[in-house]
Write a protein that binds this DNA or RNA. Structure first.
Lengths: 158, 158
DNA sequence: ACTTGACCTGGAGTGCACTCCAACCGGTAG
DNA sequence: CTACCGGTTGGAGTGCACTCCAGGTCAAGT
């Protein structure tokens, strides 16, 4: 299999495949007499898994680390498992975060639908209270948001 | 509330707040006599919602579009609802994709655990078949990956 | 009066993850 | 023989989403 075939089968572009090889995500393939890369089908399983890791939000650095461990063979099994377990926790968190957002969306869509229907709705339930040309200074009904103690997304980047 | 307070309460940096304002995600706030931005609490609900849109994978362009609609007030209700409905579909898809990956992870972790325990495991189930330093030419147990009509006229180098 | 610290602006720099490009080479079809 | 296709390289460019910085202003505290 040459790089074009692999691109077609994997859904990545030839550029991306070469890029992945350059940074170390993909192992250096054999070359034919003309210096062209030749791949065998097993690489597809690896690319597929990489793709899944990416699709679940694993950054390139961690994918790189995993790829690196992989080249070390069986000796790195435990480390790889630990990485996957850490990642699994992250994926689970992502799922529940998304599920929560889903219900916020549902609520909001519902609210909008009712507003479109002309139903009287407390505008305080909409985050979209116009701040600029409607700024009345004495708002008293603060609605919910339980004291938002700021720790929203203050981590992540080392 | 000045920008520092808002930063603390929202979890965004002052730089990010100014950046969001610059690109149009946040409305231009009033200024005090000294030219400093002053915010009222309602902005927090908006930032929170923006954050959720971001956390669920909505890119800056769409957030920008939504923010823009928001400034148009009630006239844009329907468009906003439609955006949210489109986004909701995307979020649902993301959730099921993640859920699927979760089971792949579970399987893989389980596989590794069994391998660590020395249990004999068909290495074909691992994507991590070493391609480079283990390339034996006569492999016959191809496992799955359905045949993939070999366009591979690979004249294997001598 | 002076210092401190929070704020202002415009613009440059960063990191990720590609994506594109020019210039070249090798094998096959017409 | 030559056109062309698909491959090669190194390096430049893109888009997103910030993040940092220099150099300045302003208001309040000691």
């Amino acid at each position: 299999m040459r790089i074009g075939d692999l691109a077609e089968k994997s859904g990545l572009s030839t550029d991306t495949l070469r890029y992945y090889e350059k940074i170390g995500l993909l192992p250096k393939p054999l070359r034919d007499a003309g210096g062209r890369r030749i791949y065998d089908q097993t690489i597809l399983r690896w690319i597929d898994f990489l793709d899944r890791l990416k699709a679940t939000g694993m950054g390139i650095k961690d994918r790189l680390r995993y790829a690196d461990l992989r080249t070390k063979g069986g000796a790195s099994l435990t480390e790889r498992r630990e990485m996957l377990e850490v990642h699994r926790v992250k994926v689970r968190e992502d799922i529940s975060r998304l599920a929560e957002m889903l219900s916020v969306l549902d609520e909001k869509i519902d609210l909008y639908r009712r507003m479109e229907a002309g139903e009287p709705v407390d505008p305080a339930f909409d985050n979209c209270a116009r701040t600029e040309h409607g700024a009345q200074p004495g708002l008293k009904g603060q609605t919910h948001e339980p004291s938002t103690q700021a720790g929203t997304r203050a981590d992540a980047k080392p």
